[in-house]
């Protein structure tokens, strides 16, 4: 099965939030009481019941011009997904489309993925004691449909298709846009399955890591300590066995009256 990519072109996004709504609708996510805090962005951040949201950001340059940036924030579906790496139960898994999906039944609410994610995406729901995040509408794409956010997008800022085609399209678009435009997502964490075409440099955007990667802590833990533990424990077991065979038990018996071997 070919890997799929959701392409998000910020140069065509109008911040209408049809995607944000469609996500809630398809995934039957309830709304929560919010308040206006001086921005259009609401809910203020990703939540266990808000798997994606549009971030609104104003940017003023020196000469008085203003830009209004919109960014759809949701799971990036990394190829080297730190969350999958750390998930103890296998609840987070890679689908045949390359996306990162969640088997809710398996989730044990350990929250390890939350601190592992370089994009700060997974959210914990204390009511169900499980985490929640975008699964690229696995239930839809597995039936040949596009994700609900893509379906709802009126301007074509969102599109969905085969990996190579989407990457090519993203680069073509960036070429067309020129300036600071760039493709974000194909050069790190093994390539993401949500790809951005950004009109500004990544560093400009709020809450967007400039060079995301699987955290060193996860690598140390999963790539070093985990196999080492196995190696060490196995080595010790094997060593003890060989020791017992070659050296035999230490002779602690003596000739005193209270003698007698251990292990009665």
């Amino acid at each position: 099965m070919a890997e799929k990519i959701k392409l998000y072109d910020t140069s065509k996004c109008t911040g209408c939030r049809a995607c944000q709504l469609a996500c809630k609708q398809w995934n039957a996510l309830p709304a929560g009481q919010t308040y206006n805090t001086g921005t259009y962005q609401n809910p203020p951040d990703l939540q266990s019941n808000t798997w994606m949201l549009i971030r609104f950001q104003e940017m003023s340059n020196g000469n008085g011009d203003v830009k209004w940036l919109f960014r759809k924030d949701a799971c990036m579906h990394c190829t080297d997904a730190a969350c999958i790496k750390v998930c103890p139960s296998g609840a987070l898994f890679r689908t045949k489309y390359g996306s990162v999906a969640l088997d809710k039944d398996k989730c044990i609410g350990c929250k390890e993925c939350i601190s592992a994610c370089p994009f700060d995406v997974p959210r914990y729901d204390p009511v169900t004691d499980k985490i929640a995040k975008c699964d690229l509408c696995f239930s839809r794409i597995d039936r040949g449909m596009e994700p609900s956010c893509v379906k709802a997008c009126p301007t074509g800022a969102l599109s969905f298709g085969d990996k190579d085609e989407m990457i090519a399209r993203a680069h073509a678009r960036v070429k067309e846009l020129g300036g600071d435009a760039n493709v974000y997502g194909d050069q790190f964490v093994g390539g993401t399955h949500m790809l951005y075409v950004l009109t500004e440099k990544p560093s400009v955007y709020d809450e967007l890591p400039e060079r995301p990667r699987v955290p060193l802590t996860v690598i140390a833990w999963k790539d070093w300590f985990k196999p080492l533990t196995l190696l060490a424990a196995g080595g010790v077991l094997a060593g003890s066995f060989i020791h017992y065979l070659t050296h035999g038990p230490k002779d602690t018996s003596g000739d005193d009256q209270a003698g007698g071997e251990g292990g009665e």
Partner: peptide, 21 residues
């Protein structure tokens, strides 16, 4: 975007109200 007219239909729609409360 999120509301319609005086909001009589949309203010009662939680998903919309959540976005522009």
């Amino acid at each position: 975007s999120e509301h319609w007219q005086t909001g009589v239909l949309t203010r009662w729609a939680p998903w919309l109200a959540e976005m522009q409360p």
